[in-house]
Each structure stands twice: as structure tokens, then as C-alpha cells.
Amino acid sequence: MAIKTQTVVDPFAGAPQRFAAGVLGMWVFLIVIAMLFLGAIMGYLVVRLHPDPAEPFIPKGATGLPGVLVFSTIALMASSYFMRLATQKVRLAQWQHAHAAMSATLVLAMVFLALQIIAWVTLWRNNIHFGDSLYAWTFYVLTGLHALHVLAGFIPLIRAWSKTARRAYSPEHPEGIVYCEMYWHLLGAIWLMLYFTLWLGMRT
């Protein structure tokens, strides 16, 4: 009897089972990321709601959140929309549309990051420096943490973008782009929550 030399054992009975497991795995992963941001937001709320009586939370000279954040929010939401569109088109095997939608997603994601950088620069120029106050510290840390996750999201985005170009998905096997979409929507949702929290934090 010949000894099998195969060392990688496929734990799944078939592709549908693998896909279902992948989707569940992504859901659990999304919960992990969500818990991370929930923790950060809770921390922000605690220091925001119990400020030092001697020192106001919002320092003098801070005039509110940078207005550019409105546009970055729109960019990220639009990017989420095109991501959704791309997945739909892959399922319909409309490759050109799928690739165009992926390109739009990617460009809007870059626009989002660029606008975030503009927001930080604006704040910095207004003398809101990282180490000066908790207001600045929390703003840079929270938005920075989110931006890092967006930046990491470029890896699956670029992969999905190139795979739609090569038509490497099939309507029956859209796995990669589906996982990518799940992650991308989560980042959009977290940004909305974060933005709302920061906006709330500016009310006195």
C-alpha cells in the first residue's frame, strides 16, 4: 500500500462548507475588531464625561471637529456602496462593472485617508498638539486607530481589485471579495460610530 505524501489535510467536505465556515470566521473576526473599538470608545466616554474640574476637556482655541471630516465620511460611505456593488456584479458575472466598482472603492478609500490626513494637519496647525490635552490625544488616537485599520484594508481591497481584473472569481465562488466586503462595511460602520461619538464629545 502506497503511503500518501500529502501533508495538508482539507478539513472541509466541500466548497460550500468551506465558504460557510469562512463567513462565520469573518463574523467572529468582525466582532473582535468591533470589541476593540467599543473598548476605545468606552474609554473616551469615561474621560469625556468625568473631566478634571480644574481643566476643561476641550482646550481654548479648539473650534470644533475639522469640517473636512464630513467629506471623508461621505467618501467612506460611497466607497462602501461601491464595494457592495462590486460584489453584486461578481455574483452576476459582470466583470467590467465589478472591476470598475472595485476601482471606485479603492480610489474613494484613498480619498478617505487623504482627507483624514488633512483633518490631522488642520488640527495640528490650530495648535491642537498630540501631547497637550486629552482632547487632542483621544482625537488623534481614535481616528489614527481607525485609519490604521483602513490602511490594512488596502491589502484585501487591492487583492479583490486585481482579481476582478483577472476575472479570478466566479459567481459560485466569490469568497474573497465577500470577506473583503464584510470587513469594509465594518470599517464604515465603526467610522460612523466614532465620528458620532467625537461629535457628541464636542457638545458641552
Binding site: F37, G43, V46, P51, D52, W137, T138
Partner: peptide, 29 residues
């Protein structure tokens, strides 16, 4: 565990920059 992750991250930033949300001198806790 993600909550520990974010806590340690905030602590690392705080220790590196000497300011953070756990620092009472700035209104932290």
C-alpha cells in the same frame, strides 16, 4: 481579549508619550 488589546495599546501610547487617558494630571482616570 480585544478589550485587553486596546487597553494595552492605549497604555503603550501613554507610556511612550507621557500622556493618556489613564493619567490623572490631565483629567484621565
Amino acid at each position: 481579549t480585544p478589550v485587553l488589546g486596546i487597553t494595552l495599546l492605549l497604555l503603550i501610547v501613554e507610556r511612550a508619550f507621557n500622556i493618556g487617558i489613564f493619567d490623572p494630571s490631565m483629567g484621565g482616570d
